[in-house]
Each structure stands twice: as structure tokens, then as C-alpha cells.
Write a protein that binds this DNA or RNA. Structure first.
Length: 480
RNA sequence: GGCGCGGUCGCCAAGUGGUAAGGCCGAGGACUGCAAAUCCCCUAUCGUCGGUUCGAUUCCGACCCGCGCCUCCA
């Protein structure tokens, strides 16, 4: 099944095609490791992960490279503030990032290059640009890319160079003080930044003196190294990176190497929180830990962040999180009913069914699967799943049909990165005293001693547990 | 000012040139000793005004409103 995806550059939905028999080359701008990633960052990483998963189920092989930005203004500033050396500091936050990724069920990329390990490549790239007269050393010692030397500059974002020259007059932001740096033109950007006092020990030797790489340069170098200088098939990141970061990557790489950097650009829209832009002053910039502390499950968080169109800004709300949790419960009930039909319990569902099987026919969920292949239309996919659930098909199905449907659901859930029945901890930590009270109440109820049953139920309630009966059994749940 | 994105049921949200998926919440019903859970069931003409068309929410134009980028923010 071909996977189609919107391309920022051509502004059209295009089919992703693997070049010859090599994997699809996919590069993502990864995190800058100077603190915990927030859920907005994770939206982008989750959408990228969703794409990789969909590609796998669709039968593509993918080389997924996601970098770690571990040397830049922020990492240097923060590490010095904490009086740690840069590596010690970024290692800590890299580990934290990996841990968060694991909790959110992100697949590990094929390769995770670190910027600080590519300084030589960055110097070589800068040298090449200087030799070819695309770059120059400014009066402050830094090396800048000359935007006017690059005729195609602006092609990703359709920006006219004449606009760039006057941007500090037209820009909504504050004036961009060109003379604070040694640039010839306001739109030129730094490839190599000369050493400054505030960089501390974080500098490297180069033909232009001691200094450190510019941010844009890092990705160009890591892409070149990771994919052996080949044009890559797909490049992703948050929409804010489209300009200037990705535009600058194109300018650097294509000017230096004379070949197209990337054929397809994949950008994820931003997250808003309670309808406000995320910011520390609004106190709405949540990290994964903060949401987990509030009692939301990782699966519900993941579901919330991937269940609407990645090209639209997502308004993240706690109502939305709760809605996701309810929706997931609905899917779990359905899967459980199917499993019951086969005489199975839920314990091994994720292991036995949630897999990246490349199957031709997704049966009753073919529509759901095709929606995912169509520009990652998760909303339509989920709509199909719930449509099926609502049609109440299980009673009419035999064992083989039930088994097939479970396989189809498992495959789609793999693509979505959703595991079911993972909230087992709640049940496993019920104290024995509570278990005994609940049993006593159930027995009283069976004996039609309702007064006693209700007394015991109230007792449980005041201890923070509620009972939910079905005809043959009961469940114990903690009260939120 | 430039480049973009959007305005669909209370909230979230998909979608199509032929009269609107789905989720959450809510109403009603069944079931239940009661409750919960569960099941059933109900709720929109798609920002405004024009145009094209046999027919537009879907195409075109104008307008109103919201949002993003144009500062090393995913």
C-alpha cells in the first residue's frame, strides 16, 4: 500500500516512493537537550513515529535518523548555569528524553547522531562553502553564509530575497540588529561562531580560529554523514523549523554539494494548550512527567497527541485527555469482547496481536488502514474503528472471523503505537483489606442482604474505592 | 507588509460537487434491590455576502474573525 504525505515545498500530497532497493531515507530534527521536552515537542516526535510505523506496516523499509542537538546557545548557557560540563549536562537530558520516548512508546530511530560528534564534518562543510564563495568570514571572526549568493534561497518557504533585505522593517518582531554581528547582510546566518567569553570551555579549533558551529550547519552535516551524501527522501520537523532552519539547511547543503538535499518536506503543526500559546508565563507548558503526575496514562497522552490532523494546530486540553481516555476504554472493551469470544484473556494481547505485520487485506478495518496511508488521517482511521465497534459485529462472527479482526485491530494499533490493557497497576495494588471488604459485600448482595451490602459499599467508598458490578462479577476501582 | 493555516453539533474533529464520519459530554430508554458499568437511542445544513453549477459545506471572489512563521521555538 503506497503511503501519501503532504509536502511543504510543493504544497501537495505526494506518494512516498522508495528509491531503488535502498530504504526510505528519513531525517528528523530531534530535540535540543537542555531540559525536559514538553508535550508540544512530543507531538512532532509522535507524528514522526506514527509515520515510521505506518510505513513499516505498509511494507516500506525505512532508515529513520533523528539527531540530538547537544551543542548550541541553550545547551551551553544552561550547562554553565548548572556548573556542569556540556557533555555531562546533555547526557543527562538525552537520557531523560529517551526515557520519555520509551514511556510514550516511540520506536528507537535507526540512528541518532549527536551534533558534538560531528564537529569535523561541520568544519569541512563550512570550508567547502568558503572555497565556493558561498560563505565569508565576518568582521567578528565568525563565518557567515551569504544568502544573496544562493539563487534558490527561499524556495522551500517561497520567500523572495527582496523581502528578506527589509525584514527588520516589515517583521512583526523587534529589529534584527545586523551590526551587532559581523554580517554583510541582515539575512546572512552563522555557519561558524567565533569563540566568546560566555561559551566557556565549549570551543573547537578551526581554520577561522576557535569557535563553535551554528545550529543550521549541524543538521546539514549530520544528514550528509548519516546518508553518505545522498539526496534524502523525506525530512521532518516542527512547522516553526520550516523557516529559517530548513531553508538554511537547503542553502548550505545544496550550495556545497550541488545536489538536492531532500525531495519531500514533512512539517507538524504546533500545539496550543487550553487555547493559548504554550509559554512559561501562562504556566501551560507541560512536560510528560507533569501529566503523568496528574494521573493521565501515557497511552491517553499519545492518543490525544496523534488523533487529530498533524497539519492543524492542536488545542491540547484536559477535557481532551479525558475524552481520549474514555475512547481508549471503548476500544479496550471491544478487543476484550473479541478475546473472550476466543476464550482468551487480555494478558498477551499486545504481544500476540500488536505487530507490524505487512498484510494485504485489513478486512473490516481496510478503510481505517487506508485512512492512515492517506496523509496520516488518524481522525478518519479512528472514525472507522469506532464505526465498526458501533455496528456491534461480534455476535455475528465465528472464531476465525474474530481472530482475523483481532489481527487487523492489532496491526492498526501497532501503526498508531497504542498498546491496550496497560493500566494494570491500579488493580494490582488493591490492599487485601479492600479485597476482603469487597468480597464480603458481594456475598451479602448474593444473599440479598442489601442493607449489609450497602454498608460495606459505603465503607469501601470512604476508603477511596468504588465497586462496579456486572451480572456475574464485580470490579474494584480507585476513586479519582 | 510577506509567506502560510483555519472558522463544520455544547467541546474535539473527519469529509465530499449531489443534501454532513467518529470521539467526549448531555437527554431519554433497557437492565439493575439501589448505584455504577454495559447496551439501545436522540441532538448540526458546515463564518458572512456574492458568483459558477441542474445542484456547493465542498469550486471562485470579496469580507469578517482566529492562529502560525518572518528573532538559533518541535
Amino acid at each position: 500500500m503506497p503511503v501519501k504525505l503532504y509536502d511543504t515545498q510543493t504544497r501537495a500530497v505526494k506518494t512516498l516512493a522508495q528509491t531503488s532497493d535502498r530504504p526510505l531515507y528519513f531525517y528528523c530534527c530531534g530535540p535540543t537537550v537542555y531540559g525536559p521536552a514538553h508535550i508540544g515537542n512530543f507531538r512532532t516526535f509522535l507524528i514522526q513515529d506514527l509515520l515510521v510505523r505506518v510505513l513499516k506496516v505498509a511494507g516500506y523499509s525505512v532508515k529513520h535518523v533523528r539527531n540530538i542537538t547537544d551543542v548550541d546557545d541553550k545547551t551551553i548557557r544552561q550547562s554553565r548555569a548548572k556548573k556542569q560540563n556540556l557533555q555531562e549536562f546533555t547526557n543527562y537530558w538525552t537520557n531523560k528524553f529517551h526515557n520519555d520516548c520509551k514511556i510514550l512508546n516511540l520506536l528507537t530511530p535507526s540512528l541518532e547522531p549527536r551534533a558534538v560528534e560531528h564537529i569535523n564534518e561541520m568544519i569541512q562543510l563550512t570550508q567547502k562553502l568558503v572555497e565556493k564563495k558561498f560563505a565569508y568570514q565576518g568582521s567578528d571572526g565568525s563565518v557567515y553564509f551569504s544568502v544573496k549568493s544562493c539563487k534558490e534561497y527561499g524556495k522551500l518557504n517561497r520567500i523572495d530575497q527582496s523581502e528578506l533585505k527589509t525584514q527588520n522593517n516589515n517583521s512583526a518582531g523587534s529589529a534584527n540588529l545586523a551590526d551587532e554581528y559581523g554580517r554583510e547582510s541582515i539575512s546572512d546566518f552563522a555557519l561558524w561562531k567565533s569563540r566568546k567569553e560566555e561559551d566557556g570551555e565549549n570551543y573547537w579549533k578551526s581554520p577561522w580560529g576557535e569557535g563553535r558551529p551554528g545550529w543550521h550547519l549541524e543538521c546539514s552535516s549530520m544528514i550528509y554523514k548519516s546518508f553518505d551524501g545522498n539526496t534524502i527522501d523525506l525530512h521532518g520537523g516542527g512547522i516553526d523549523l520550516s523557516f529559517p532552519h530548513h531553508e538554511n539547511e537547503i542553502a548550505q547543503s545544496e550550495s556545497a554539494y550541488g545536489k538536492t538535499l531532500c525531495n519531500h518536506w514533512f512539517h507538524c503543526a504546533h500545539l496550543r494548550v487550553e487555547n493559548k500559546k504554550m509559554s512559561k508565563s501562562f504556566k501551560n507548558l507541560y512536560t510528560l512527567d507533569e501529566l503523568l503526575d496528574k494521573g493521565y496514562s501515557p497511552t491517553a497522552i499519545r492518543y490525544t497527541l496523534i488523533s487529530s490532523s498533524y497539519r492543524q494546530p492542536l488545542n491540547f486540553t484536559f477535557d481532551g485527555l479525558r475524552a481520549s481516555q474514555s475512547a481508549l476504554t471503548k476500544i479496550e472493551r471491544f478487543a476484550k469482547a473479541l478475546l473472550n469470544k476466543l476464550g482468551k484473556d487480555t494478558d498477551n494481547f499486545n504481544h500476540d496481536y500488536v505487530k507490524a505485520d505487512v498484510i494485504k487485506n485489513h478486512g473490516l478495518l481496510q478503510d481505517a488502514w487506508e485512512s492512515l496511508c492517506n496523509n496520516l488521517n488518524t481522525a478518519a482511521c479512528l472514525g472507522s474503528i469506532f464505526g465498526l465497534i458501533g455496528s456491534n459485529p461480534i455476535s455475528k462472527m465465528d472464531a476465525e472471523e474474530s481472530e482475523n479482526l483481532l489481527k487487523s485491530i492489532g496491526t492498526i494499533l501497532y501503526a498508531l503505537g497504542i498498546n491496550l490493557f496497560t493500566e494494570t497497576t491500579k488493580d494490582s495494588i488493591i490492599p487485601n483489606a479492600i479485597l476482603e471488604l469487597a468480597k464480603a459485600r458481594w456475598d451479602a448482595k448474593q444473599n440479598k442482604d442489601y442493607a449489609k451490602a450497602d454498608t460495606l459499599r459505603n465503607k469501601l467508598k470512604s476508603a477511596g474505592w468504588e465497586i462496579k458490578d456486572s451480572s456475574a462479577d464485580y470490579e474494584i476501582h480507585p476513586i479519582d
